[in-house]
Computed example of a mutant assay.
Amino acid sequence: MADSFYIPESVNELLDLLLELKKEHLYILSGGSNLLINDQKRYAHIIYMKSVDCSFENYGNGLFYIGASVRIQKVIKEVNEAGFGGFEELIGLPALFGGVVYMNAGIGGKEHPKFNISDFVLRVKVIDKSDWKIKWIDRADCDFDYRKSVFQLDGFIILGAEVQLDEQMPEISKEIIRKRQAVIKDSQEFLKGTFGSIFAESNRNVRNLVALTHKKKGGVSFGTKNTNWFLNDGNASFEDAIYLIHKCESMHKLFRQPISREVIVWE
């Protein structure tokens, strides 16, 4: 799949690598970006952000810097122990913080979101791919929208972000997490292979109709609890998943219903 797969262990190491490969086509891999990768394609260079910036800094009064490589579960634990909170319900995401910002992850649908991570972000630390320099981008310039951000246009690499959180007693945080974990277990395909939500915007009735007529393709099937999720039986391929995505999109077009992808596809 990848001719070269890199796991830089610091920002400086990442910068050196980018300067070396800047004329090459690069793919940045984080966690939590709802990614579907073409398993029939070879990629020249993939950079995994797992270890680039694992820093967590508490500046006081609810202001934190969180590195892109910190898992969201650790972020939640650290801010809760410091007596702050706000996004505990992201506890179930298999995500690094950079991926959370990239996708503007949150809770709730497009029409009535409970919150998005952009509600807490003050500014984002990035590498600008136009000149390979480290910069800060203020929230107003991040073009955050429902599961969208300027970072999806591939002009920047997220290194971390500053967030501002409200005070919250640890007991309240624990109760929010407990309730969210119960919801996840009840409403999601718990511990089954999936890349997360497929569509940021779609019609549930149309999705359900497609699921009735095309319940499974190869190793991919629609979720039984939520047809906005696909399940992998262990033998799924990219072609299986993209086939069902295209079926949903064409059916929405037939019924003149809006649809947009949340999953990021490496064609």
Rank of each mutant, 00 (worst) to 15 (best):
S10R: 03
S10N: 06
V11W: 05
N12E: 15
L14S: 00
K22F: 05
H25W: 12
I28C: 04
G31D: 04
L35I: 06
R42G: 12
N58T: 10
Y59W: 06
F64Y: 06
G67K: 00
A68M: 03
S69V: 02
R71C: 08
Q73F: 03
K77N: 13
A82P: 10
F84H: 10
E88C: 07
E89T: 10
V101K: 09
G109C: 12
N116C: 14
F120W: 13
K129P: 01
I137T: 05
R139Y: 01
K148Y: 13
Q152A: 09
G155I: 03
F156D: 03
I158Y: 00
I158S: 01
G160T: 02
E162V: 04
D166I: 01
E167N: 07
R178S: 12
Q181N: 10
V183A: 06
L191C: 11
G193F: 07
F195G: 00
S197A: 11
V206T: 12
V210I: 00
T213Q: 10
H214Q: 07
K225T: 07
T227K: 03
W229K: 04
F230V: 03
A236D: 07
D240K: 01
I242F: 10
L244A: 05
K253Q: 13
L254E: 12
R256N: 13
W266P: 02
